[in-house]
Structures are given as C-alpha cells and as structure tokens.
Design a protein around this nucleic acid. Structure first.
Length: 470
RNA sequence: GCUCCCUUCGUCUAGCGGUCAGGACGCGGCCCUCUCAAGGCUGAAACGCGGGUUCGAUUCCCGCAGGGAGCGCCA
C-alpha cells in the first residue's frame, strides 16, 4: 500500500509549535515510506479563517522545510462535493435532516448534564417526515446506537467506545458548509489518505469519523494520535510560555533543522541519540515508537540543540543562514569581513543567530561608547603604555592577519614584562567596547586594521584622562 | 458530570520480568584558558500509591490518586 499522509491545519491563526510537530511526524512518516505528503487547509469556519493565517502557515512550513507533494487544497473550494455526498447519504438514509433549534439543543444538553449524562443529541429528528416551516435544517449522520467502535491507533493501541455514548454528529450546516467532521472524512477519502496522524485532542473524535466512513462505505484509514506538547509548567502551551508561533523562532535566530530536531525528540527517541540530521530522522523515525504521554516544551534543551547545530554546521551554509538572518533583521553587514570569517569566530559562543549578530555587532558598526565599568577597569593610566606600544607594533605589521597580530601582542607583553592577559583585555575593551569577544587576535583581524587603530587611539585618550592609580 | 487517554531524575527520554535503572538538557565541582565560550572529566538527581500474578516486578493485571483531552451548526 502506498502511504499517503496529510497535515490539515485550520487557518485561524499562526502556525504554532504543536502544529509543526504534527506536520513533522506526518511528513516523516510519508518520507520514511516513500509516500506522499498532502497539505490541506481546513477553512470551513468562515468566521475565523483568514487569508493572512493561510500565508503564515505556508511561510512557516516553508521555513521549516516540510514540503508537501500535493496541495495546498482548500476545503472552501470543494463545496459542491460535500453537498453531493451529503445528498447521497440523505437518499440512502444514512443521514437525515434535523430541524432542532440551537436553543432546543442547549436545553437538552443542560438537562442531560444535570442528570449526570454525557451531553449528546438524542436523535429526535431521526424519524421526522415533514420539514419544519421557516427552519433551514442541518444534516446529521444516522449513527449506530448499539455496539462499539474501536480505533486501531498506531501509538495508543486499540481504543474502544460505546456507540451509545456517541450521538448523531452534524455533517452539514444550514448554509451548506460541511462541519469539520464531515470535511475531514470526505477529504481524506477523496484524497486517498491512508494514515491520519494528528493531535491527541482528536482521539475522541475518531469514533465519529469511523461512523461516517462506514456510512460512506469508504476505507477507514490507519490512525495515529500524537501526545500533546505542554508548556514548561505542564499547562497547555500558550503565549505566556514564550514563543509558540514558529516564525518567532525564525526571527529569534533559531535554525529550522535544530527546531525540528528538538521537536522530533518530544515523544520519540531512538536509543540515546540526540542529534538527527533530516536524513537520519527520515530513516529512523518510527511512529509505533512514539510515546503516548504528553511532553513539556523545554526551551533550554532547544537552545542547546540550536547551539550544537550552529557549532557543527557547514561554514558556507551557516554563513548564508546568518546573512539571511541579518537581512531579516535589517542589520548592516558591510563594510566588514566576510560572513564566513565572522561565523567561524563567533559560532562557539552563540546559542542563536541573534546572539551571533549581537556579539559581532562591533565588527560592522562603530559603538557609541565603551561600557563604563569595563573602561574603568581596563582603560586606566597603567594601560597607556600597553595601548601605545600595541598601536606602534600594529602600524608596523606587514600583514593584518591573526598570527602576525598575535605575535605582535606577545612582543608587547614581553617588552613590558607583563602577562598576556594584561595586554589582551585592555585591547578587547578598546576595540569591542566590552569585555567579551573571541580570542583577541581573531577579533582584531575581523575588526580590521583601520578600525582597530582608530578605536585604540580613542581608548588611549580615555586612559590618559584617568587618574594615576594602578 | 460522562467518555477516552496518560504516569521512569526538575525536563526530554532508554528500558520491553533478574540492570550498580542508562543517556541528554539544566544544575554543582574540577581541568583547559588573554575575556567569553566551546571542550574534557566528575557529582547530585527518577520508577505516583495500594493490591495482585511470579522464585523475582520499573516492566504484566486490577484499583486509587494525580494530570490531560473530548462531550459545538470550532477545528
């Protein structure tokens, strides 16, 4: 059997992190089996669906690199089809028109709850022959009232439900819009979806879907219900847990590969392995090995993974990604060294591309002022000779290159009879405006000779103005 | 309330009847060191509770407790 999976978001907001994980697992399953991955936009909720959401979902998926083979399809483009299927069900008697008003249904539910029953439609329109004047009816499924349905779930195993606990689900609204339940089933069947991989929150919807499938006489797909992702505090993931919109991760300098790697390990493991390339994910992913318990989103571990990816990423690629990030954030990258050099120097101390941009800012831009505390500590009268001698040696250097710079600085330390640390730190403060940077020779090389000398001159002035205390 | 699901270090997880219960993140210590990192070594840290089954349960079964999801003309 040729595997076909789908991701079916509803465009009522941005693409969130839980959705990405669902999409990832569907995508992995399809890719692993050499199957097809379909994207379908479930936009039957006209009130809440927006064009902007569709765009956000699409760019989110693109950024993260989960490419679909078919779609995006839109349910709103398939009206006629749902109507035709519903009509057929009506004529075959597997569905019926229901004229109950919302108020009536509300009252029914309230009563049932007070009686301690599972609130559900009691089927009072099942045998109705005559339409009710002035009421445009909904269409309901005539579902079995006895027996059980069992969902054969790839991650949960068999889960059974009593049909008596389920009610006659609404298929079509009065305006001819299918409900979610009807839309998914018809679409999954029409599109030949073999495996439905979706969030845990749909598990209790599944028996209804199976009833619809049985009424339609279409094959029941294989189901796999994924556990939810919770916030760090165990509550449902929401904005107060930090970023939930995928694009926020892009904007904060996360690498899509790292995000996916983090997500794939939420609820799934392959022995002790933590880092998976896309290829490895595809090869090793096994839906049956997915955990059934919900997991919490841990930003610390995502950070660690992102750092690992930055650390080990191929130079050219990282430079490209960093460049794209700088552009996205409107950061200046010229004049200055090549991004390849920058990335080599800063990758070891950046958790995100944002960190990297921040840490290397002085390479491309002139700072307003040196950090006060740093200047006070490192640019004092005693450092005047260090700065002066360094400038002298730098001016004389035939090439502006780290080995030569390093040698020159060792010469300065030796000439003044002080340790390398007494040379490096004042220079660092002078040239970067702060106390943290890559090794001083590398830093100076990147900043460039002209800028270095200019900044040293300025720092020298500052140091000379300090009171003579050492 | 009803139905369904879940339960190993703080977190993500390995485990699939006999293990010193392993790894990773985070946290502590040490080493390396011109700053910050990265890296190396190392330490603390878990089987929710109660019954069974079994020679033996983290592992199988049943309760309980705790968490979660669903019960819409939302998806």
């Amino acid at each position: 059997m040729r595997v076909k999976t789908r991701f079916a978001p509803s465009p009522t907001g941005y693409l969130h992190i839980g959705g990405v994980r669902t999409a990832l697992f569907s995508w992995l399953y399809a890719r692993h089996h050499g199957g097809t991955f379909v994207l379908r936009i479930e936009d039957t909720d006209r009130e809440r669906s927006t064009e902007a959401s569709i765009q956000a979902i699409l760019t989110g998926l693109t950024w993260v690199g989960l490419d679909c083979d078919e779609g995006p399809f839109r349910q709103t483009a398939r009206f006629a089809r749902y109507a035709a299927v519903a009509e057929e069900m009506l004529s075959r008697g597997t569905a019926y028109r229901c004229y109950c008003s919302r108020e009536e249904l509300e009252a029914m539910r309230a009563q049932q709850v007070t009686r301690g029953e599972n609130p559900r439609y009691d089927g009072r329109c099942r045998e109705r022959r005559q339409p009710v004047a002035g009421v445009s009816p909904v269409i309901r499924l005539r579902s079995p009232r006895e027996g059980t349905v069992t969902v054969h779930d790839l991650v949960r195993g068999d889960v059974s439900f009593n049909n008596a606990d389920l009610d006659d689900v609404i298929l079509m609204r009065p305006d001819g819009m299918p409900t979610f339940h009807f839309g998914v089933v018809v679409d999954d069947a029409d599109m030949g979806i073999t495996h439905v991989i979706r969030g845990d929150d749909h598990l209790t919807n599944t028996p209804r879907h199976i009833h619809i499938q049985q009424a339609l006489g279409v094959p029941v797909p294989v189901y796999a219900h994924l556990p939810m992702i919770l916030g760090a505090d165990g509550a449902r993931l929401s904005k107060r847990h930090g970023a939930v919109n995928v694009l926020e991760y892009r904007d904060r300098g996360y690498l899509p590969d790292a995000l996916l790697n983090y997500l794939v390990r939420l609820g799934w493991a392959h022995g002790d392995q933590e880092v998976f390339s896309r290829q490895e994910m595809i090869e090793l992913f096994d839906i049956a090995a997915v955990n059934s318990a919900a997991s919490r989103f841990d930003p610390d571990k995502l950070n660690w993974l992102n750092q690992q990816y930055i650390l080990t990423r191929e130079r050219r690629q990282l430079a490209d990604e960093f460049g794209a990030f700088m552009d996205l954030r409107g950061l200046r990258r010229e004049p200055g060294p090549s991004l390849g050099e920058v990335v080599d120097a800063y990758r070891e101390r950046a958790v995100t591309l944002e960190d990297m941009a921040q840490a290397s800012w002085y390479v491309f831009n002139d700072f307003e002022a040196i950090d006060g505390k740093a200047a006070q500590q490192h640019l004092k009268a005693a450092t005047v000779p260090v700065l002066a001698l360094a400038m002298e040696r730098f001016e004389a250097l035939p090439v502006w290159q780290r080995a030569a710079i390093h040698e020159a600085l060792q010469g300065v330390a030796a000439a003044l009879g002080i340790g390398f640390g007494k040379v490096g730190q004042p220079l660092r403060v002078a040239v970067t405006g702060g106390t943290v940077s890559p090794p001083i020779d590398v830093t100076l090389e990147l900043v460039g000779r002209q800028r270095t000398l200019r900044r040293l001159r300025h720092a020298l002035q500052l140091a000379q103005e300090q009171p003579l205390l050492s």
